[in-house]
Amino acid sequence: MSYNQAFQAYQQNSVATASPGELTLQLYNGCLKFIKLGREAMENKEIKAKNENLQKAQNIITEFMLTLNPDYEISGQLMPLYDYINYLLRQANINDDVAQLDEADQMVRELRDTWKEVIKLDRQNKYASGAQA
C-alpha cells in the first residue's frame, strides 16, 4: 500500500469513526484550510484556485446553516454569524479582498476554537460520569 493510499484510508476511517462533534470540528478545520488555500491563490493571482477553494469554504458554511436545529436557542445566534461569514467569503472572492477573507478566517477560527472546548468539556463530563458509576 502506497503512502497516499494509506493516508486516504486513514482519512476515511477518521471520518467514519468520528462522533458528530468531531465531524463538526473536522468541517471547521476544512473550512479554515480552504480559506488559507484561497488566500494563497488570491495572493498568487491564481483566479481559478482562489474561486474553487473559497467556494469549498462557502459550501461548508452553507452546510452548517442547513443543518442548524431551530429547536435550540443557539441556532438563532449562529445563523446570522454563518450568513455573515458566507457574505465575507463571497465578497472576498468577487473583489479579491484579503481583509474580508481575514475577517471570515478569524470568525471561523473562533467558532472552531469554541467547538474544541465544547468537545473537551463533553469528554471530561463523560469520563467523570463513568468514573462515578
Rank of each mutant, 00 (worst) to 15 (best):
G38S: 14
L32W: 12
Q77S: 03
L66F: 11
N29S: 04
F34M: 10
N59H: 07
N29L: 07
E43G: 03
D96N: 03
E73K: 01
L81C: 07
T24A: 13
L37S: 14
D96Q: 06
G38H: 10
L32N: 01
N53A: 08
P70N: 05
E43P: 09
G76H: 11
N51K: 01
I61S: 03
D96S: 10
A49M: 12
E63H: 15
E73L: 02
K56F: 13
A49I: 01
Y82K: 07
I94C: 11
R39D: 10
Y72T: 00
E52M: 14
I35R: 02
G38T: 06
I35M: 14
L68T: 03
M79E: 13
Y72V: 00
T24G: 11
Y84M: 03
Q77K: 05
A99G: 00
K45T: 06
V98Q: 15
L37A: 15
Q100F: 15
C31K: 01
Q100T: 04
E63I: 04
D71C: 11
F64S: 08
Q77W: 09
D83V: 04
N44Y: 07
F64N: 06
L81T: 03
E63F: 13
M65E: 10
Q55L: 12
C31P: 12
E46A: 10
N59F: 00
L25Y: 13
I61P: 01
N44I: 04
K36S: 10
L25W: 09
N59L: 00
Q58G: 07
K45P: 08
Q100E: 15
Y82R: 02
Y72P: 03
E46K: 02
R90L: 15
L78Q: 05
Q55V: 05
G38L: 06
A57R: 00
D83M: 09
A41D: 13
A49P: 05
N69P: 05
I47Q: 13
L27D: 06
E46H: 13
F64W: 07
R90V: 15
T24W: 04
I60E: 02
Q100I: 05
K48R: 14
A92Q: 03
N93V: 01
D97R: 07
T24M: 08
F34C: 14
E43F: 08
L27Y: 04
G76Q: 02
S75M: 02
L32K: 04
K50H: 08
L37Y: 15
K48N: 09
Q58C: 09
